[in-house]
Amino acid sequence: MSENTSQTTTGATGTTEPAPFPWAPATGVGSLPGGDAREAAKTVTGSFEDFPFLAELPGRGPGADMIGRTAGMLVELYARVEPSGWRIGDRPGRDTRRAHSWLGEDLDALEEFTQGYEGALKVQAVGPWTLAAALELRGGEAALSDSGACRDLAASLAEGLRLHLADVRKRVPGAWVVLQLDEPSLTSVLLGQIRTASGYRTHRAVDRQVVESTLRDVMGAHDGPVVVHSCAPGVPFALLRRAGAAGVSFDFSLLTERDEEPIGEAVEAGTKLFAGVVPATDPATGPGAAPATRGLSDPGVASWVSGRCGAGWG
Results as ranks from 00 to 15, higher is better:
177 V>C: 04
45 T>C: 04
137 L>R: 12
25 P>N: 01
109 A>V: 09
105 E>T: 15
163 L>F: 09
132 A>I: 03
60 R>F: 09
241 R>W: 07
97 R>K: 12
80 R>G: 15
127 G>I: 04
305 V>N: 00
20 P>L: 00
230 S>M: 05
61 G>V: 08
61 G>D: 09
154 A>R: 05
75 V>I: 15
300 G>T: 01
277 V>T: 10
145 S>G: 13
286 G>N: 06
141 E>F: 05
82 E>R: 14
240 L>Y: 04
281 T>L: 12
161 L>K: 02
233 P>D: 15
283 P>L: 05
56 E>D: 09
192 G>N: 09
165 L>R: 05
134 A>T: 13
223 D>P: 03
27 T>D: 04
164 H>A: 11
242 R>C: 10
157 L>C: 09
305 V>A: 02
63 G>M: 02
194 I>N: 03
192 G>D: 10
133 A>C: 06
55 A>S: 14
74 L>F: 13
1 M>V: 14
313 W>H: 14
226 V>D: 01
219 M>L: 10
172 V>H: 03
170 K>P: 11
110 L>C: 12
99 A>Q: 09
274 F>A: 01
130 T>Y: 05
44 V>T: 02
219 M>K: 03
126 V>C: 10
270 G>P: 07
125 A>V: 08
144 L>T: 05
259 D>T: 00
303 S>F: 01
121 L>V: 10
31 S>L: 11
232 A>D: 13
287 P>S: 11
193 Q>L: 14
311 A>M: 15
189 V>K: 04
248 V>L: 00
189 V>S: 08
98 R>M: 13
300 G>F: 00
266 A>M: 03
292 A>S: 13
211 V>E: 07
236 P>H: 04
120 A>Q: 01
255 L>M: 07
309 C>G: 14
311 A>K: 15
151 R>M: 12
57 L>P: 08
232 A>K: 03
84 S>T: 15
122 K>E: 02
121 L>F: 06
312 G>A: 06
289 A>H: 10
171 R>D: 09
12 A>F: 06
155 A>Q: 15
302 A>W: 01
262 P>W: 01
235 V>C: 04
255 L>Y: 09
120 A>Y: 00
22 P>M: 01
118 E>Q: 12
144 L>S: 05
314 G>N: 06
225 P>E: 04
153 L>Y: 10
227 V>Q: 00
156 S>V: 11
125 A>I: 08
212 E>S: 13
224 G>R: 01
